[in-house]
């Protein structure tokens, strides 16, 4: 056939075929997407510090392990309260003359998703310790240690942010560990990662592929949530698997008067609304509210904490907690 023997015709055809498909499947959808999506009215631009922090996030290739997308599937529910939508990314524009747009959605989830990291882990102290060496707070973590974002000083100057890291992570060196500006920018960026509530009247997209929970007989004993798993997921990164916390950063639950005491109202309040009553420890975020924990789940966590690591307090019932929850929620609103 003449067509096959004419290189101009053959290569032009192949090129045009590819180019037309490219326009249809990549360029037009991309143009369409950026034209039809605007940032949500409920969202606000991130702070200057966070912008600098995002640059550090990009430079260090954090996207290699951390995604920033909550997919519309049930298993992603733990990463955000709703699936991400195109509008969530609409405000992200080209970084600068040299660098492309960084939506940072990612394709690997070797580490946790960070879409809602600002809500999930708002404690700056925890984030700094974790950044210096993740294994100081999460023993099993394989995240790199970003030690070069910190300096070791003999004496902390005024305005320095001192980080309390267990001694063994300082590799035998003495002094005060101070976070550099870059570390603080990076944390500011992580703090800024918060899922924005959809404006009223917009229907939230659904999570698909719900896990079919095999319903055992209603009221069966095996239906209680797993307190150990819930503790691991929500509490352990600060209070540690052994319940002893980290000296100078996170208080121990082992032998804690709040955990073992009778003031359940304070206990539930701390879990739901956070705590900042003791200067020697970091601020506790409102873990329960952020993670949308149910009464049953909170009961399971409390019971796990009251009966582990040598704690011997009386177990609580779901009904008790339910009543306290309503009260605590009211209190939070006022």
């Amino acid at each position: 056939m003449e067509f096959f023997n004419n290189h101009k015709l053959l290569f032009r055809t192949a090129f045009l075929f590819f180019a037309v498909l490219t326009i249809l499947v990549a360029i037009l959808p991309a143009l369409n997407n950026q034209r039809n999506n605007q940032p949500l009215p409920t969202s606000a631009p991130i702070s200057e510090d966070a912008v600098k922090g995002k640059a550090i996030y990009i430079a260090n290739g954090c996207v290699a392990c951390h995604t920033q997308q909550v997919r519309n599937v049930d298993m992603d529910k733990i990463w955000g309260s709703r699936p991400s939508i195109a509008a969530d990314y609409a405000a992200i524009k080209r970084t600068d003359f040299w660098r492309n747009t960084a939506t940072l959605m990612g394709t690997e989830r070797t580490g946790p998703d960070l879409t809602d990291a600002g809500n999930r882990q708002p404690s700056i102290d925890w984030n700094l310790v974790h950044l210096f060496n993740p294994r100081a707070v999460v023993k099993e973590s394989i995240m790199p240690a970003y030690t070069w974002l910190f300096t070791l000083k003999k004496q902390a100057d005024k305005g320095d942010v001192v980080v309390n890291v267990p001694k063994e992570f300082l590799e035998g060196k003495e002094g005060k560990l101070v976070a550099t500006k870059d570390a603080l920018y990076l944390i500011a960026y992580l703090q800024s990662l918060k899922q924005v509530k959809l404006p009223d009247g917009v229907t939230t997209p659904e999570f698909l592929y719900k896990q079919k929970t095999i319903e055992t007989k209603a009221g069966g004993a095996g239906n209680e949530p797993d307190g150990v798993a819930l503790y691991t997921a929500n509490c352990q990164s600060c209070h540690q698997p052994n319940g002893e916390g980290l000296p100078g950063a996170f208080p121990p639950l082992k032998g804690s008067p709040v955990v073992n005491g009778d003031n359940l109202q304070l206990y539930v309040d701390i879990i739901m609304n956070g705590y900042d009553a003791r200067a020697e420890y970091a601020v506790m975020p409102s873990v329960g509210t952020n993670a949308n924990l149910s009464a049953a789940e909170i009961t399971a966590i409390i019971n796990h904490e009251r009966t582990s690591w040598g704690n011997h307090a009386k177990k609580v019932t779901e009904d008790e907690i339910k009543r306290l929850l309503e009260y605590v929620k009211l209190k939070a609103k006022n």
Partner: peptide, 17 residues
């Protein structure tokens, strides 16, 4: 060329490309 030309890279455009 498609990947590095900036005109269609805002927001999710970047991800589609």
């Amino acid at each position: 060329a498609v990947a590095y030309i900036p005109y269609w890279q805002n927001g999710l455009g970047e991800t589609i490309i």
